[in-house]
Design a protein around this nucleic acid. Structure first.
Lengths: 199, 199
DNA sequence: GATCGGATCGGGGGGATGGTTG
DNA sequence: TCCAACCATCCCCCCGATCCGA
């Protein structure tokens, strides 16, 4: 049971609508609101959370875009390419290298999807892929052994993107992956050289 | 004002029909029942009670302010921003860290609401939110499991504010939260550095 | 006995390091 | 065999929330 505080006139109004002797305010309210006696409704919370990059959830959204047929809204900080991203506050304030790494990839994807797709295919290690599409499908499809191996690399979805990246790598390797991606995609040399300062 | 007792589910139903932050159950009921507004306007019910922060009840009240359409009166000690707060007697004499923590947040909210709102969204832990709006609604809406988790963090309404904060944290973490909030809101570095002395 | 502040300690994630492969 | 490149184990630190003491 809960106690709520209401103004006197509202209280009078409720009592004025009494229909049976001994009816409680609560019962009267139910009737007035056309609610069943045993009302049991859960209002589901619909908050799509982006657990992987915690920092800029509800930031200004721009650029409605289409990914896999679904429309998405991209945070402003990620919508204007790598160069602008480097200058953005959210990027500078982010301390976790993996997050910066993924933010860059998001920005790059939206800057040039075709080039990104091509570069993603070429960027891989000796035994493992570094990037790919549709992580969920991959995780569902592979056989047990391969799956264990795959998971060891800690692949994660790149936010606002149909791609995933490997996450279990030291910073040096993350730089290598970034460098390869940016080179293949044709980013200018001076921007590529900034990688080691930025992440 | 009258108090009436209602079942939990009815209470949830009422809160589920909230349309504006800070709306009281009474106001919601009026709308649902198509009743005119009361002539006597409520202030008390919107204002989070200050039973948690003791002993400045009879203190000078200043700065009539608007929170979500309701007018409130703010204790002088909390009305002039963080810097003044640090120098105030009530703050210095307060021994409970959590109270000081919340006093600072109240002061910060009134010093710059927009910045506060933005900073509150960004300030969060790995799995839990640190601040948010409308605790009542949150508590009524979430599903059982999430609710238990949420409650473990002991969220409390920040007095004179539509926000709540996590309270179940050690002092070190409270400092981290404060630091993040103040940085994001753009407080000067020297004030931020005083956090570890002040709380 | 009940409540409340918040230190303590278990758990989880980031990514450096040591081991492995070609 | 040795070296370079790569992999993924595992350490350390951060975060959460249980629980102890006031």
């Amino acid at each position: 049971m809960k106690n709520i505080e209401i103004e006197d006139d509202l209280y009078k109004y409720i009592l004025a609508n009494i229909e049976a002797f001994g009816e409680t305010p609560s019962q009267i309210l139910r009737r007035l609101l056309s609610l069943p006696d045993a009302f049991e409704n859960t209002v589901a919370s619909v908050t799509p959370t982006l657990k992987s990059i915690p920092s800029d959830q509800k930031v200004e959204l721009v650029k409605p875009d289409i990914i896999d047929g679904a429309q998405i809204s991209l945070p402003a900080s990620l919508a204007h390419g790598v160069k602008i991203l480097f200058e953005s506050k959210v990027f500078k304030q982010e301390t976790i290298v993996t997050h910066k790494f993924m933010m860059m990839l998001t920005a790059m994807y939206h800057e040039n999807k075709d080039a990104f797709v091509a570069a993603a295919q070429k960027t891989k290690g000796r035994t493992r892929d570094y990037l790919g599409q549709n992580l969920k499908v991959l995780l569902a499809t592979e056989n047990k052994e391969e799956l264990t191996l795959l998971k060891a690399s800690k692949p994660r979805d790149i936010p606002y993107t149909p791609f995933w990246v490997i996450t279990n790598a030291n910073t040096a390797r993350k730089r290598i992956i970034m460098t390869q991606m940016m080179s293949t995609m044709g980013y200018p040399q001076d921007l590529i050289e900034r990688i080691k300062e930025e992440i």
